[in-house]
Structures are given as C-alpha cells and as structure tokens.
Design a protein around this nucleic acid. Structure first.
Lengths: 203, 203
DNA sequence: CTGCTATCGTTTAGACCTAAACGTACGTCA
DNA sequence: TGACGTACGTTTAGGTCTAAACGATAGCAG
C-alpha cells in the first residue's frame, strides 16, 4: 500500500505498454506487470474478470459483516430468502433449493440442517409418491427474513449508489449480457442466486 | 429450471412492477419476486450486485476446473502469480502477499505452507533487523506459473469475448469506477488481486 | 537495561463448500 | 414381480477461508 511502486504491480510503463492501461489503477497495474515480466501474456480479460472478482469480494465481505453483526450468516439468509421469495407456502424441495442458490445438493443439505437446528426451517417428510424432501420456512424463519432483508438490500443499494443512475443501468445491462453469454458458453446451469448471498468460494 | 414459472422467482408482474425489470431475466425475476412478496423491498442494488456475484462465481468455477485439470488450485496459482509478477528476485513478505492477494495473513501462511510442501516456494529466514519472513519463488514454482498463466488468462479473455470490444471497455470502465467508489466507502483495504484468483468466499 | 507497545507471522477453532460415496425409493422392463 | 437403472438427499473426506488467540521480536521510553 505504501511502497507498492517499488515492488512490481505498478511498474514503469514498458515501451510496448498499451495506451488503454493506466499504471495508477491497481487492476491495470496487474496487467502491466504481466506484460513487463512476460511480454505477450494475454491480459485482455483482466480488466473485467479481476475487477468482477474484486468487487464481488468486497460486497460479499460487507454483507458478511452486516449479517454477522445481526447474528446471522450469508448461507442461512440465502436459504431463508429463497424460501421467502417463493411465496406461500414457503416450501421448496432440496433440489429446487440447490438450483436456486447455485450450490451443490450436499451444501443445501448442510445448510438446511443448520437452519433446522436454529428452528428457522422444517423438513417435511417426502410426499406420498415422491422422495423429494420439502423444506418449509417456520414462523421464526419468516421473522428472521423480514428483519434482515431490507437492511441487507438497502445497504447494497447504497453501496452501488456511487454510480449515477444511468451508469447503474448501463452496468446492470452489460452484466446481464455477459451473464447470458457465460451461461451459453459454460453449459447452462440453473440460475438464481437469492438476490441475497455472495458467491461461494466459486468452487 | 423446467417449471420455475410456477414456484416464484419468475412471477406474473404485479400491477406495480417497474418497467425496467424483465420477468424473463433470472436476476430481474428475483427483484420482481421480492416486490411481489414484499412491496417496498429495496431491490435497486440487485441488478448489479447479484449479477456481479453470479458472474464471479461462474468465472471462478471455470478457473477452478481449468486448474484442477492441470493438477493445481486457484489459491496456489494466486500466490505464485503475485510472486512471478513482482519480478526478480521474486520475493515478497507475508504481509505484502496478504495485501496483494486480498486474503488474511493467516490464509497466506497456510497457502505458503502448502506451496512450500510442493516445493514451489521457499521461506527465507527474516532479514537481520526485521521479523518479516520473505517468501521466494523456486525454479519449480517459476515453471509452474509459466506453464499455467497463459492458459488461464487466455481462457478468461475468451470467456468475456461474447461482449464486443467497446462493450468490454465500457464494462471494465464502469467496474473500475464502482471499485474505486467501493474502496473509499469501505475503508480502503490494500488492493490487488493477482489478476489470477477468484474471490475467496468473500468473507 | 527494563518494560511497553506495536508489528508480524503462525496456529487454532469454526464455518462452509465441493466432490464423491452412499443409501433408498421409484419406475420400468422383462 | 423381480432386477435394474435412475433420481434424490445425506454423509463423509478434504480443502480453504476468516477471526481471533498466540508467540516472538523490534523500537521506544523511562
């Protein structure tokens, strides 16, 4: 932070440095460092990918802190939110939860177990002709969502308010296009994300 | 995936649904579901925040898969990359590594321990008048970086190529502005990110 | 020189996740 | 109706991260 200039990531622009990269920007500095050390390194994606990860990390950490202060965690709120948003009877199967929260069925099983222990959800026995376990929001779980959702979402709306309304719209639209394209390229997994809940460690 | 329409996230637009939200888009559907269930929910940030997390997750999973196929993991490549990019003598202290990779010192300690066990880095005893442990890239570590960086970065450049060049530039620029603003709002932690390495589970 | 304090790095405890191995229960096809 | 394949959920093993407790040391003040 104090003397990064000497050590590498923000280097003196080499003779061949692309004009688009600003040595003063932390992310551009990464691309420039690669080019300085290994001319020809394909740095094209860094400007988007690294910033995406970086922003996701900052926002995720912030949500975690906000929820930790309220005695909750992101994984649980994610689960409760999906159920709450699904509307009455606030009941979904494990598989639906996995798809909507973008985590593996195993992770959902663990999340549900934790939330169940806190009395926030209940597991109902599989319906007669099915083996799908239904997970239902309890009254207590419902209360928890109500008490946290506005706080969390308002906080995040505020965090992106540094961008002007048109910029926010432009950014959201570009991300929408990128996301749609990524889905087609990567083999369209479900979707969703609670509108709540930072990305798991990707993995 | 098949019948999401019935269960909630993509609801029939309520009378008060904002014109900007498209019920057919998975992320907009989340905002619409909140508005349907809880009119007044501050959904403004969802279009950006959720998409950001979602894209970060997809890209992170992809990198993890690419590296797993090559017998490596993202955390280790992140470490090696920062050292490689810093230029000769490819040596940084634990603290510098923590700042540049945006993870806690404890995580760096664990990463270094793992990489050291694989013979990819070495821990040098603290210099005489200091307690800063220097971590250095070994020849083997250097080779590993060289063999993986181009593959990983080229792959990611390709993944964002669905956006036209001007769109990529516009997206990168908006993210740059957002990131700068987030840093000022959240208490400017260091920076960096290897240009390599998906976000830890955010928090 | 003696003790305080700030700084560093490591260790530990607790969360959480993925991948994969497991049980089970359907449904089907002979 | 009996065996098989499949879908679903849970469990287990392994890995990573953060937060916080620790241990040790350098710099300073008295």
């Amino acid at each position: 932070m104090t003397d990064r200039a000497r050590t590498g990531d923000d280097p003196p622009p080499p003779a061949t440095a692309p004009a688009h990269l600003d040595p003063g920007d932390p992310v551009d500095a990464i691309a420039l460092a690669w080019l300085r050390e290994r001319p020809g390194t394909p740095v094209t994606g860094i400007g988007i990918v690294t910033r995406l990860w970086h922003a996701a990390k900052l926002l995720g950490e912030d949500r975690r802190r906000v929820l930790a202060a309220a005695g909750q965690d992101t994984a649980t709120l994610d689960l409760l939110s999906v159920l709450r948003r699904s509307g009455p009877p606030y009941r979904l199967t494990t598989r639906e939860l996995a798809e909507r929260t973008m985590v593996t069925p195993g992770a959902v099983s663990q999340r549900v177990a934790r939330a169940e222990q806190e009395g926030l959800v209940e597991r109902a026995a599989p319906a007669p002709g099915s083996r799908a376990v239904a997970v239902t929001l309890t009254d207590r779980g419902h209360e928890v969502v109500e008490s946290l959702v506005d706080r969390v979402l308002a906080r995040e709306a505020d965090l992106v308010s540094g961008l002007a309304p048109e910029q926010q719209r432009a950014l959201a639209e570009l991300l929408r296009v990128l996301l749609a394209d990524l889905h087609t390229r990567l083999g369209d997994r479900p979707i969703s994300q609670v509108g709540t809940e930072p990305p798991g460690r990707s993995g």
